[in-house]
Each structure stands twice: as C-alpha cells, then as structure tokens.
Amino acid sequence: MTDDKDVWVFSEKPALQAELIAGAHQLSANTGGQVAAVVLGARSQAEQAFDLGAQRVLWLGELPSGRLVEDIVPTLVAAVQDKCPFGVIIGATVRGRAVAGRLAARLGVAALADVLEFQWDGSALLARHMVFGGGAVRIDRPLASPVIATIGQGIFETGSLQAQPKGEIEPLPWVEPPWQAAVIERRSRAVSSVNLSAAKRVVCPGRGVARQEDLGLIEELAQALSAEMACTRPLAEGLGWLPRERYIGISGAMIKPDLYLGVGVSGQAQHTIGMSESRVVVAINKDRGAPLMTQSDYAVEGDLYQVVPALIRALKARKAK
C-alpha cells in the first residue's frame, strides 16, 4: 500500500491531537489519502483515535519512564522515510515545535510554523500564517515533500467528524536516539486555571500601569465589569506581574470576547492580532495617537489613574440603580 497521500497527525496532548485529526481530514480530502494518527500512549488511547476520526493509527507505544516526548524523533524519521506520507501535522506546543523542527531538518524540508489555514491552488498546497508579529499574512507553498507543519490549539474544530471503524493498530518500531538527556526533575508550574478564550469580557492592563500594586485598581475594574484579567506580554514576561497564561497576542492567547478593554496598552501588532476580533474594543490611554486608540470603538483619552477610578464609580452607580 502506498501512503504518499496520507496525512499524519501527532500531538502529545490528546485534546490537540483530536483537533488535528479533524483538520487533517480537510487535507486528505484533497490528497485523496487517509488520516493517520500517530499515538504516543497506552493502547487504549491508540484505539480511541479511531473514534476521533482517524482512519489509520500508527502506535509509538507508551513513553518509557525517564524518556522525553522528543525522543520519538528518530522513530518518526524512520517511519516517514519508510512510508512516505504526504505530510505530518504536529501540535504547536513547546515539545511539538521541537519535534517538528528536528524532524524537518532530518528530512531536509522546512517546517511550516503555526499554520492558520491550508488552501488548495489546483493541485498545490498553500499554507497561511502570520509573520511580522501579526503585521502581515504570508501564504507559503512548500516545495519539498513531505509537508511538515505545526498547528496550535483552537484552529480546527472537532465534533463534526464521524468515528471510524476500528482498524488494525500499526506499531512503529522504536529507534533509539543517538543521544540522551537525563530527566532530573519535573515541577508542575502553578498554572492559573484561567480560560481567557471563554471569557465574555476582558480587561487588559499594559505597561501604562506603573507599579505592580496598581494592578489592584485594574482588578477592581475587572470585577465591576465581571471581566477576566488579561495583560500584554511585558507584564507577564519580563515584569512577571501576571502569569504567562494571561497575556494576549501572537505568542500568547487569542481571544474574541464581547468586550476588550485595554488600559495603558499601546497596541503593537503582536498584541492586537490576539484581540482584533473582539466585538467591542475600548482603549484608555493618555496618548490619543497610540495605535490601539485608532483601532478601537471607544477611545478614552486620559490618565488611567484618573479615568479608571471614575469608571469604577460610574459602573457601580449604574449597577446600584
């Protein structure tokens, strides 16, 4: 059997794997091949991939203790060289990016990073992604095969797919990596349980907030609006005032709430790409020329230290009525 029309998907995160299976069907509809899930985990998880819509399941087995997900690279390289699929789509987690980059290098191709959409131009595949920090959309055509791409969470929807009949699980023979990193420790990070993408209203402080203590004021505004707190990247990375899970933008969360209220946010493309699809955009900034001020529905010109307390009072007064 030739597999050169098949599309493989891999993610170490089961939820993302499910989305990729759904997305891969859009591709295989054009290549005329099948969607194969590459599964790392228990046999039951491999079986489950059929229920999620995979037509074939390539099974890596369970990761032996002390090994890293990244250690599958030589096995994947050998499997791809052996079976020659049309492409391999990999979930864009930190580990997924590492797997994709190394796999691409070994296969002599370039990985298409953070693809937002695949398109077909006659017989050729095109991939759309953001470059220049969200300032531009680039469409790339891969010239070499196989196509290696990474895709993040929330790009493809699961749900509409039919479960596939359970077929045979095809084990992939393990290839020992040439070098080994020793796992010394794993500490779970205190990840805030925030799900920004589900929030209806979001208040987003930026560097216009001068001190960490002043975030209390923004928090109070968020409460008055029953909104979730987000932030710009410098507040999370660099200043470390808020957890990374809360920053919005090209390298952070992508959100589409009913209300986005940016407080002391300049509105660089890297940030606004993550919130430009919000229904109502409000900016509070002392500089009326800040990019976000010209890209919002309501732009309040003023010092946040005066406007925010006044806004909290105004909102509370309305609620009390």
Binding site: L126, G134, G135, V137, R138, I139, D140
Partner: peptide, 11 residues
C-alpha cells in the same frame, strides 16, 4: 529553498 512565499499582505 524548501518553501516559496506566494504572497505577503496586511491582514
């Protein structure tokens, strides 16, 4: 080159 940029546009 393994990839060709077909177009580059503002969103």
């Amino acid at each position: 080159p393994r990839v060709e940029a077909v177009s580059l546009r503002a969103p």
